[in-house]
């Protein structure tokens, strides 16, 4: 049994990390009142940028490459998310539609560039990845140590730490208060002197940055190359995690960990005696079915930010 947990839990954390980053990005955007269905596309941008940077500069930067690739992916994806911000905030576009456009554009543009630069539908495999580490001290704890703190990827641990940072930022700082105010009642926030458009731009760009990180670590750790199928639904899964987590950073992290757990079960489940007879399809649809159930209110009521999805037009009641 312990042995099984030692396989499943680390692989759950490993699958969850990209989802956690991206879902936290979604929390920023949606808390400010901007729907971000474009998370999927932003992850694609991050994955593409991360892989291309890694392949191009692996010789110069050696083992720092994946970290630099992650940063570059973060910057590129946050610039890319500006398109969604301009459409949704300044041009008052339907936010869902603009998000759909982002998804199309990210995939189209990145595959276009891959074909142009590599002359084929997918890139080569990256050679330099993230290192696995044992966390000092914590990994020495009996039972829990080997399961939770040994032989994990650094970005996975970063993701979990970041969830707490985001929680602090959103609930304990003036910035977070303003962010939530803009998402709940933009007119009241505006009256109090908060620049609604500016807050929303920052929030959308943060969501782009975090989704970019999520995409790049997914591609670097899990797929190791970039093709049309690299990011296939992880962005939507992160969106689901955010809603499942009731737009709360720690809730989103918990949901992402749970989805990671379901994913890892569907992959390593074949090796586990009592799961061997469960068809994989049930494990594959579990995260999605659970999200629907969660939304339906069986798992506590989830309320979206009040102003979610509505552009703020100054002076309009």
């Amino acid at each position: 049994m312990l042995h099984i947990l030692e396989i499943i839990i680390p692989s759950a954390i490993f699958f969850a990390a990209p989802l956690i980053f991206t879902a936290l990005g979604g929390v920023f955007s949606e808390r400010s009142g901007v729907v971000n269905i474009g998370l999927e596309g932003l992850m694609v941008t991050g994955a593409f940028t991360g892989i291309v940077f890694n392949l191009t500069f692996a010789d110069q930067f050696g083992e720092f490459t994946p970290w630099l690739a992650m940063l570059v992916a973060m910057v590129v994806a946050s610039i890319f998310s500006l398109m969604h911000a301009v459409a949704a905030i300044s041009l008052r576009a339907d936010q869902v539609v603009s998000g759909v456009a982002i998804n199309f554009l990210a995939l189209g543009l990145s595959l276009f560039l891959v074909k142009m630069w590599y002359g084929k539908g997918q890139t080569d495999q990256v050679q330099v990845g993230f290192d696995k580490i044992d966390i000092p001290i914590l990994s020495k704890i009996p039972i829990l140590g080997p399961i939770l703190f040994s032989n994990g990827y650094i970005p996975s641990y970063l993701a979990i730490v970041l969830a707490f940072v985001v929680w602090y930022v959103i609930y304990k700082t003036p910035f977070g208060l303003r962010l939530r105010a803009v998402g709940e009642h933009p007119m009241a926030a505006d009256t109090m002197g908060i620049n609604v458009a500016k807050m929303r731009y920052i929030a959308v760009m943060l969501s782009g940055a975090l989704a970019g990180i999520g995409g790049s670590i997914y591609a670097t750790i899990i797929s190791r190359d970039f093709s049309h199928a690299t990011i296939s639904g992880q962005g939507f899964m992160a969106l689901a995690a955010m809603i499942f987590g009731k737009w709360h950073p720690l809730g989103a992290m918990g949901a992402a960990l749970f989805f990671g757990f379901a994913q890892s079960l569907s992959i390593v489940g074949q090796a586990i005696p009592f799961l061997k007879n469960v068809p994989t399809v049930y494990l594959l649809i579990l995260p999605y079915a659970l999200t629907i159930l969660a939304l339906t209110g069986f798992i506590g009521r989830a309320d979206a930010p009040k102003a979610l999805g509505t552009p703020y037009v100054k002076g309009k009641r």
């Binding site: 398109m83 459409a87 576009a93 539609v97 603009s98 759909v100 456009a101 982002i102 199309f104 554009l105 995939l107 189209g108 543009l109 595959l111 276009f112 074909k115 142009m116």
Partner: peptide
């Protein structure tokens, strides 16, 4: 590359 068309379609939606 054929993906050019996907870019055009995305921009039209946009």
């Amino acid at each position: 590359p054929t993906e050019l068309v996907d870019i055009v379609i995305a921009l039209i939606i946009f």
